[in-house]
Design a protein around this nucleic acid. Structure first.
Lengths: 224, 224
DNA sequence: ACCGGCCATCTTGTATACTAGTACTTGACA
DNA sequence: TGTCAAGTACTAGTATACAAGATGGCCGGT
């Protein structure tokens, strides 16, 4: 388990959750491996309580499985679940961007344009970490401007299945496409073209349909 | 707090969660009221741990708010959140029923028809409890037959905002309409009419747009 | 050699103890 | 009378202790 520093404000539970998610996404905790509440808590210098609460939360979205009196494991990759997460995002974000075309204010659009400009900047500067953050922020902004923050939060929790797959496929080469997708979506919003924006969003998210067989042969044993 | 018996198999946490949800939906825990982990745990004959875990889960969907070192409260009714929950259901169920038109098997359709028949039966017998269960089951079946169980589970967690409002509007007079809606949806699925099924589902769920002002004047102080 | 039962050691679930921070009450003092 | 400070009684967050079930190895008997 790879650890980073604990933020000053965050609670033990939040810290444990952040560490676990990070390590699961980046395969430092490999699919199928056992998780011991005791081990984890001593590694993170916490007691079992906050660690346990984090594990419960992760089990709610099926990324961790808890077997009472037996143990907990990092879930094997279940392609059904990955596709389910992608479907959920596609459907919800499609509807949200369509709605955004109706309700976006000048300020909202300015914010989106600013975000896209920053993406271009960091693409040149090769900061893929920053790019990922901006990508997430872009999508979150759409939910915020349509007053759908709670939905974003719920949807985000299941997205981890999908983030894990994404980190397995070597390259984030699609960064360039990502940015031009975002640009096109903003343009559709400006033009108040709801149907167009929805289609663009669905196409954008369909890029994440990563080839299962390729990954399965590269990482045998990680899949259910 | 109104309590019912604890099932033999369920854990303390599950029991606490079930009790809390029931009491929030049926307004035995009124919006805005304080929740003390200590009080709740002694009422339910549990320790703070499982009760606390249940409260954390409820806070994730905004039906309970936890203020560290100060206390927890049952959230006031926020119509934005209610509408958000309705929107989420409408969008997801619309997409799912459209998909169901493509993939439903004979068995799936038989199951749906059987459910509708039972609804008719219990409508005559005036068992509104059983009707609600069948209603929930109907919707869940659509998610199951399209392999979207995880999405149903997540969506269901936010539906509580919506269930609370529904229990406030006096009558479940719309039972008859509910059943005919369900019948129409099943017919559309049989006819493999995806667009029609989607529209019917959205219309069906729009019935839950309960008049805010009427409730607000009847229950002043329950709203944000 | 093989099978069965006991035991030591894991696991998570729950209960309880402790910590630290908030808010209100009470009472003394200006 | 008004104000401020100490004390008290709450809160949630965390740590730890205990309970109960699952597992696997070991040892003895057949």
């Amino acid at each position: 388990m790879r650890l980073t520093e604990r933020y000053s404000k965050e609670t033990g539970r939040e810290y444990a959750l952040r560490m676990l998610k990070d390590n699961i996404i980046h395969l430092d905790l490999i699919p199928g491996s056992m998780l011991s509440e005791n081990e984890l808590s001593s590694e993170m210098h916490l007691s079992r309580t906050p660690v346990r609460e984090a594990l419960i939360e992760l089990s709610k979205v099926g990324i961790v499985e808890i077997y009472p009196q037996k143990g907990s494991v990092v879930s094997l990759i279940d392609y059904k679940l990955v596709e389910e997460a992608r479907f959920m995002r596609s459907v919800l974000e499609g509807a949200v961007v369509e709605l955004a075309c109706k309700v976006a204010t000048e300020e909202d659009i300015t914010g989106l344009l600013e975000n896209v400009k920053l993406q271009e900047f960091y693409l040149e500067n090769r900061s893929s970490q920053k790019l990922l953050e901006l990508d997430d922020e872009f999508h979150q902004m759409l939910f915020h401007m349509t007053s759908k923050d709670q939905i974003y939060q719920l949807m985000d929790s299941i997205t981890i299945h999908f983030d894990r797959i994404r980190s397995m496929s070597l390259e984030a080469v699609k960064d360039l496409k990502t940015i031009s997708d975002h640009q096109a979506i903003v343009e559709a919003i400006i033009a108040k073209d709801g149907d167009g924006a929805k289609m663009l969003m669905e196409k954008h998210l369909s890029r994440y349909k990563i080839d299962e067989e390729a990954l399965r042969s590269r990482y045998p044993g990680y899949f259910k």
